[in-house]
Nucleic acid binder design. Structure first.
Lengths: 205, 205
DNA sequence: AATGTGTGTTACCGGTCAGTAACGTCCCAA
DNA sequence: TTGGGACGTTACTGACCGGTAACACACATT
């Protein structure tokens, strides 16, 4: 396309991703980003391949069909989300009560920095055709995340740990979705305040 | 298509809607139902017109483009949702505290009877292209609904009525979206319990 | 030098979709 | 009876999309 000063490293100045990674990783990364911007049904495989500095054939050599690519993206998003548990342990080692507060902080932070909501929930909304392979990926990931939070609440010494964890999940998911539909000035402004009051109420007795 | 026993009333045994209404109303009703089932981008105008027992030309005579039809559907969905306020006043006249509990009950009821989530939120997730006309419809409707709940909390004698209303919105929206992504056995099971505890906590002092 | 793997390029297929044109039909009102 | 407005039918366009075929190229290993 343009001049190629280096021989083996292709020109990628106009692409979203670095060519240092292999096409497969670049395709997944580009797909995640484009799905975030335009929704899954709003992006074609051609656009994904081009954004990745690759092409449709290579995409289809790695992923049998678009749905497989979607599943792979969701799995990657999910595993990135799961990193928060080790990050919290690193930030507040051996202090699960503080980690719980940290989880809320992190969620609130993300919600205010990005009003596009949760990738998994957005995919679930879009892919509601019965039996879509992504649905299992989404459900498994969400259940695992909830279970991790339940466990954290238990380790934090909360007696009704399951109730608290599920209530916090409702607040956070609700805040994300309010940011998406109402915009920046919505009820999600109260997320931190309400969550911390809830944690206090469950931690006291 | 089949035999026509009546002359002026067309055969509609295989259609979703009665022919007693005019095509415009039938199209909107069918579109709302199909959008609920398959998402907005997952339904073509041909399918909508056919489900309404009409045709694409008539659809385009009433709605200039698909986006206009989408906006009309969302407005109708929104105005149907707003009916809850008069229903609550009818059910518990002059008792805003009881109406507030009724609002939670109604929300929980709907969430467990239908896991497809809120039409407005689902549309916001799908239509994230900048400047889509539906976005304003969604935002206005959601803001109005929140404002009504804030007012109800105030009339119920809650001192921090805005905080309570916004917290309840987070819980309800979160429950809806959890039902959609996780399925029937999710944190939304705790919606009523958590909401009522929250109402109690805000009502006591 | 030969080979095989991964990748890029071009072209194509069948299907679907939003939107339009032209014409025909029915019914109601004047 | 005669319009006229609302509605139905068919056919079409241009664009896009998911997916495939065939061929060419680069590079690393042997």
């Amino acid at each position: 396309m343009s001049s190629t000063p280096s021989k083996t490293i292709a020109d990628n100045s106009d692409k979203l991703v670095t060519t240092l990674e292999r096409p497969r990783e670049r395709i997944v990364k580009s797909a995640i980003e484009l799905f975030r911007q335009h929704g899954i049904k709003g992006v074609g495989v051609d656009a994904i391949a081009e954004a990745a500095g690759s092409n449709k054939m290579t995409l289809y050599r790695h992923f049998g069909c678009k749905d497989d690519l979607v599943c792979e993206c969701l799995k990657q998003v999910s595993s990135e989300k799961e990193r928060i548990w080790v990050d919290l342990e690193d930030a507040y080692p051996g202090d699960p009560a503080r980690q719980l507060r940290g989880w809320v902080d992190e969620a609130a932070q993300r919600i205010f920095n990005d009003l596009r909501g949760c990738d998994l929930v957005n995919a679930a909304v879009e892919l509601k055709e019965a039996g879509h392979p992504a649905q299992r990926v989404i459900m498994d990931a969400k259940k695992a995340h909830v279970q991790h939070l339940v466990e954290l609440c238990r380790r934090a010494g909360v007696q009704q740990y399951e109730q608290l964890a599920q209530a916090l999940v409702l607040l956070v998911e609700g805040a994300r979705v309010c940011g998406q539909s109402i915009g920046i000035e919505g009820p999600q402004q109260r997320l931190k305040q309400t969550s911390e009051a809830l944690i206090d109420a469950f931690s006291k007795p």
